[in-house]
C-alpha cells in the first residue's frame, strides 16, 4: 500500500489523510446509527473502532494519528463555550427546580466518585488508573479537565467516558423499567448524570422534556465537577 505508507510519512498528507478519514467514518457511523439504532453502531463507539483498525492495518501508531487529526481536540474549547446557550435557554427551569437539581447533582457526583474509587480498589486498580476512572460520568471536555486536575491521565479518562456513554445509554433503559420513577425530571437526571452526552441523546428520544433537562444537567454537573476539582488541586498544591 504505497499511498497509505506515504500518508504516514509526509506531515501534510498525514493531516489530510487522518483528518478526512476521521470525519468520513464519523459521518458514516452517524448514518448507520440513524438507520439501525444498535448500541455498537453508536458513532461514539464505531468511529474510534474503525480508525483503530486502519491505524493497525497501515502499521501506524497513536502518535502518527495524533499528528494528523489531533487538531480536532482543540475544537472542544468552542464546544465548551457553546454550552452557555442551553443553560441560558433553560433558566426558567433552573429557577423553578434548582433545589431538586442541585441535590440530584451532588448525590450523583458523590456516588460516581465513591463507587468508582471503591470498585477500583476492590479489584486492585490504583494509582493514575484509579484517578482516571473517577470523572468518567461527566461530559468529555469537562472530564478531561477534571482528570488533569486530580492527577489522572486525560486520554485514558476519555476512553472511560466513551465506555460509560456506550453502556450507560443501554443500562439507563434497563433501570427505568425497574425503578418506580414518574417524573421527567428524574428520568432526565438519570441519563445526564449517569451517561453525559450519550445519555442525553437517549433522553431526547424518550421525550423533549427529558431531553432538555438532561442537556442542562449534563452541563451543570460537568461544570460543578470542574470547579470542585480545580479547588481541590489548588488546595493540594
Amino acid at each position: 500500500m504505497p499511498l497509505l505508507a506515504l500518508a504516514t510519512l509526509e506531515p501534510w498528507l498525514a493531516t489530510i489523510f487522518w483528518s478526512s478519514l476521521t470525519i468520513a467514518f464519523y459521518l458514516l457511523a452517524k448514518q448507520l446509527y440513524s438507520r439501525w439504532p444498535r448500541w455498537w453502531l453508536m458513532p461514539l463507539a464505531l468511529t474510534p473502532a474503525l480508525l483503530i483498525v486502519v491505524v493497525l492495518v497501515v502499521h501506524a501508531n497513536y502518535g502518527d494519528y495524533l499528528h494528523g487529526a489531533g487538531w480536532l481536540l482543540t475544537v472542544l474549547g468552542p464546544v465548551t463555550v457553546a454550552f452557555a446557550v442551553p443553560i441560558y435557554e433553560q433558566r426558567a427551569l433552573i429557577k423553578r427546580d434548582w433545589a431538586v437539581l442541585a441535590i440530584g447533582m451532588v448525590a450523583g457526583t458523590l456516588t460516581a466518585v465513591g463507587t468508582s474509587w471503591l470498585l477500583a480498589t476492590l479489584l486492585g486498580l490504583n494509582g493514575t488508573l484509579r484517578l482516571s476512572l473517577l470523572p468518567r460520568s461527566i461530559s468529555t471536555p469537562f472530564a478531561m479537565l477534571v482528570s488533569q486536575d486530580i492527577g489522572g491521565v486525560p486520554n485514558l479518562t476519555a476512553v472511560f467516558v466513551v465506555m460509560t456513554g456506550v453502556f450507560g445509554a443501554v443500562l439507563g433503559d434497563l433501570l427505568l423499567s425497574w425503578l418506580p420513577i414518574r417524573s421527567s425530571l428524574a428520568r432526565g437526571a438519570l441519563f445526564a448524570i449517569g451517561a453525559h452526552g450519550a445519555g442525553t441523546a437517549r433522553a431526547n428520544q424518550i421525550g423533549p422534556e427529558e431531553g432538555s433537562i438532561a442537556g442542562l444537567l449534563m452541563v451543570l454537573v460537568g461544570l460543578l465537577n470542574v470547579l470542585v476539582a480545580t479547588l481541590i488541586s489548588l488546595l493540594l498544591h
Binding site: A99, G104, S137, L171
Partner: peptide, 28 residues
Amino acid sequence: KILAVILGGTISVMGVTAMTVELSGNWR
C-alpha cells in the same frame, strides 16, 4: 476489571441520582 468498575459505577450513579431527584421532587 475496568469494564466492571464502569458498569457497576454507572448503574449506581443512575439509580441513586434518579431516586434522589424523584423523592426530593415528591417531597417538595
